[in-house]
Amino acid sequence: MIQMIDSHIHLDHYTDDEIEEVNSSISTIQSLISVSFNLESAKRNLLLSEKYPKVNPAFGFHPEQPLLTNDERMELLSWIECNQEKMIAVGEVGLPYYLRQESSKPLPLQEYIDQLEVFIVLAKKWNKPIILHAIYEDAPIVCDLLEKHSIQKAHFHWFKGDPVTINRIAANGYCISFTPDIVYEQEIQEIASIFPIEQMMVETDGPWRFEGPFKGLMTHPNMMNESIAILSKIKEMPIQEVYKQLLYNTRKFYSLI
């Protein structure tokens, strides 16, 4: 039977009914890596992992929001410290690319970088993979931090960026995951064409909604079948081999083997 892993989903952002629907219709999904947005999100993901065996939670702080206060940061980090053995990775963390585009005044980027570095240090301390929101010009900054701390397992989810950075990510042994937008976005297809399949994963980033053939549909892990079909064409590989390679990559990266 064909098997997949959704390497990046915000399961806690679905409604209770949607979560039940997803978990009752994923016979070909081995695991859901459910990333966290903040402390409350992390707590809910932990509860979901206790209820649904296929859910593996990651704990972090999504960068596309205002910085944590010192007290908020201490509370979050203390909670993660207490529960780090129950998480599969640190994430989602990174830098606020979209927030900077939308903000009417400059954001304190260095403070976001400093906040991210805290999570990178902890990922190394706990020997956990790190799941990153780092695109375009933010990605080289993040690569600098990862290299500074000799991080081995970094997952750039839904990556967008230039060929130089793509090659740098590949050379460092880091992974990139592709969402269903690879089905209709040429920019993403071009990234897939030059990135090694041995370092690829697939994801949904659900409940984020997609366009093209997915317009108006609830984002579901089964949509990754369409992503894999496109990857098969791009890489000119038999689709069954692509399924096996992506599953192997993800299981190895997240120590699910």
Rank of each mutant, 00 (worst) to 15 (best):
M4S: 00
D6I: 05
D6H: 04
I9S: 05
D17W: 00
N23L: 15
I29T: 15
V35Y: 00
S36E: 07
S36Q: 11
F37D: 03
K43W: 04
L47S: 15
L48R: 08
S49A: 15
K51L: 13
V55L: 01
G60I: 06
F61M: 14
H62Q: 15
E64R: 05
L67S: 10
M74F: 11
L77G: 00
S78V: 02
C82A: 14
P106A: 10
L107T: 02
I113M: 13
L116G: 08
L116N: 11
V118H: 07
L122K: 15
L122A: 07
N127T: 10
N127M: 11
I130C: 12
I131T: 10
H133L: 05
E137I: 01
D138C: 11
C143A: 07
D144E: 15
D144S: 14
L145A: 07
S150L: 14
I151V: 15
A154Q: 09
F159M: 06
N167P: 00
R168C: 08
A170D: 09
A171E: 14
S177H: 03
P180F: 00
V183Y: 00
Y184I: 09
I188S: 05
A192S: 06
F195Y: 12
Q199N: 12
Q199M: 06
M200Y: 03
G212Y: 02
F214K: 01
K215G: 02
P221Q: 10
E226Y: 08
I228D: 01
I230S: 00
Q240F: 05
Y243K: 04
Q245M: 09
L247D: 04
Y248P: 00
Y248W: 09
N249A: 07
N249I: 05
T250F: 12
K252Y: 15
I257T: 10
